[in-house]
Nucleic acid binder design. Sequence first.
DNA 1: GGCGTCAACTTACCATCAGTAAGTTCGGTC
DNA 2: GACCGAACTTACTGATGGTAAGTTGACGCC
Lengths: 196, 196
Amino acid sequence: MPRAQREEQILRIAEEVFAERGFQATTMEDIAERVGVTKPLIYEYFGSKEGLLSACITRARTQLRVATEAAWQGVGAEAPLEVVFRAGVRAFFEFIEEHANAFVLIQQEGAVASQASPLIESIREQQSAATMATFRKAPALAEVPDRLLEGYVEVIIGACERVAVWRTRRPGVSTQEATDIVVSTVWAGLDALLPG
Amino acid sequence: MPRAQREEQILRIAEEVFAERGFQATTMEDIAERVGVTKPLIYEYFGSKEGLLSACITRARTQLRVATEAAWQGVGAEAPLEVVFRAGVRAFFEFIEEHANAFVLIQQEGAVASQASPLIESIREQQSAATMATFRKAPALAEVPDRLLEGYVEVIIGACERVAVWRTRRPGVSTQEATDIVVSTVWAGLDALLPG
DNA sequence: GGCGTCAACTTACCATCAGTAAGTTCGGTC
DNA sequence: GACCGAACTTACTGATGGTAAGTTGACGCC
């Protein structure tokens, strides 16, 4: 099997196994066996156990970024800020629903590995930065100082993550409802920043 | 040295070492050496490496609970909801500032260990439950359905955590400012729930 | 004052698993 | 049909989590 294809397969399976058993409890041979190869091949491709986890996380990060960008694209650049904001939040909850594995992985493996922790943090930073960029484009928010806006964006990122976790314990809550909770809580505060 | 005292010493040092190097990179002998005993004694007292981490986290959870309760106590039960709310948020940021070690530990070791992840989650749940209980006492929120209120509480917990992390990258932000960001963002949404 | 006993602690060991060195196989290319 | 490089394996090492079997010493008790 060509390398690129094998790597993709390993990543898919590793994400699954890590999510099931946790990083620590998973051995490289567990994964190798399930893929149908032997350990050294995985070391050849990913360097170490942490390297493999890192690759899984990086993959998830890219997928989330693509999904978020698509959502904003879909709503159009000239839509009112609230609509853009809502589209991004909604895309997040839909992404989580579709990639439950990746979410469990990230949720559970906050940082077994010294490398993983910053990487997971980098997912949040990616989302913060993207949200900042979107807000910065809105003329209504032009006057708001950077630092304050950054703080608000952090509130949003934290709120989304926590509500997503809460949803896993409350399966009745739809993505729509989750979106509404975040938007309605935070929007009023954000709205107060707008002139008038 | 009597057991209770030795256990406390081990916990203090373990929290330090775990926070410094990360859970995985820390060996039981690192800790034993720094304490001035040998490995098996720590196993005798805490059962396993995960058991030791769990004990560290549980300790931090208790400390946070005590700090939060003290803050609410201090403000009085009849204070307006916003005042009580603000006191809790502020206590959180002050706690984080005083217990940077514990916060790094929890932040970094989201879940090396299968046992640790639910325990860290239980800290958030402890804070959610306490906040829920406080809100439920407020007559103004009596009409709000449980599930919606739960969602709002999750937003608050997530916002606090994320802003706390953000602060570690932005050392200029005071606890007062962090409190203001969370309260001003979320309060407007919460206020909208109040009748009138 | 010796004797038992229990808590605090150590020495010496095992088992597992991350990581590696040295191949082997095989498909394509000249 | 000899060469070469990519994909892959066998067989090993070393570190470290965890444990079994002591040792030491303080304290109570007759």
